[in-house]
């Protein structure tokens, strides 16, 4: 029954997947509450530019994904605060812009191959030991930052102006939050894929919100939904030879539908 754990690549995938489930769900809570849901899609596409540069130039694609996602996150925050642009329009512009740049880079560099495909949709087979170490190190730092300032992020999500007037450095913390989210997204695209990571970040929180409970309980429920979806998704993908990212997303969607029906019948 446990032959799944006899394979080294599955052990690595499970470790990476569990770390990503924790990171995506905890950061996702703040992203959803701040009404930033679309930022995850945009940053995932920006991370893809990093992957493209990494593949073509021969750098570690995961590290490059982190760098490009963080730069994109800062650009988004800067554009939102410096100009009174509509924030969803800023996200849409950067999303398509990033994708276009990524496609041009890989096409010029002749890197249109399975490797890029695995970053688009995620692949448990491709998670290396080096990836697991990178995910663990950056993941711990990101989680630490989220937990350290969780009360501030929560206050800002509820009422940004009152948070500002109470002395909280809102602009600085907004930059920190988007940076942490960028790092988490970049780390996640190995397992879930850049086209699907948004779902793992957003859907567990939206499902948890259906339970209409306080903040801490919402985070915990969201965490369990993400963990269950990642573990179930990976197991199913192993036994039925399905793409890992898509299977994980279908699992989390299934839980979302169940929680929607169960909580709205009460």
């Amino acid at each position: 029954m446990f032959e799944i754990f006899e394979y080294d690549f599955m052990q690595r995938a499970f470790v990476a997947g569990i770390i990503i489930a924790i990171l995506a769900s905890v950061s996702g809570t703040f992203v959803v509450l701040r009404r930033y849901s679309m930022i995850s899609e945009t940053l995932a596409h920006s991370a893809l530019v990093g992957v493209a540069v990494g593949l073509v130039a021969g750098f570690n694609p995961l590290w490059m994904a982190v760098v490009f996602a963080v730069i994109s996150a800062w650009l988004i925050e800067y554009l939102r605060s410096a100009f009174t642009l509509y924030s969803d329009a800023v996200l849409a512009i950067l999303l398509s812009g990033s994708l276009a740049i990524a496609v041009i880079i890989v096409s010029l560099g002749g890197a249109f191959n399975n490797s890029l495909f695995s970053y688009l949709f995620g692949s448990i087979l491709s998670v290396s030991s080096e990836d697991v170490v990178t995910i663990a190190i950056f993941g711990s730092i990101s989680l630490g930052a989220l937990l350290l300032f969780s009360k501030e992020f929560y206050f800002i999500a509820y009422d940004e102006e009152v948070a500002k007037t109470s002395g909280i450095k809102v602009n600085l913390l907004n930059f920190l939050l988007v940076s942490v989210v960028a790092v988490i997204i970049a780390l996640s695209i190995r397992v879930v894929g850049s086209l699907l990571i948004g779902a793992l970040m957003i859907i567990p929180t939206v499902s948890a919100l259906q339970f209409r409970v306080g903040f801490l309980k919402t985070v915990i429920i969201s965490l369990f939904i993400a963990l269950f979806s990642v573990i179930a998704g990976m197991t199913l993908s192993f036994y039925f030879s399905l793409p890992s990212g898509a299977t994980i997303v279908l699992c989390v969607l299934f839980i979302f539908i169940i929680s929607l029906i169960a909580n709205n019948r009460r």
Binding site: L33, K151, E152, Y154, F155, Y158, D159, E161, V162, A163, T165, S166, G167, I168, A208, L209, R212, V213, G214, F215, K217, T218
Partner: peptide
């Protein structure tokens, strides 16, 4: 202490108990 116009118009789906909200006053 600042209480703005939106005080009585909150997002009904925001996951916050009364205690969660009052604690925000100690955050800074």
């Amino acid at each position: 202490g600042y209480v703005g116009q939106r005080a009585s118009h909150v997002d009904a789906s925001f996951p916050a108990t009364v205690l969660d909200i009052v604690k925000m006053g100690r955050t800074s």
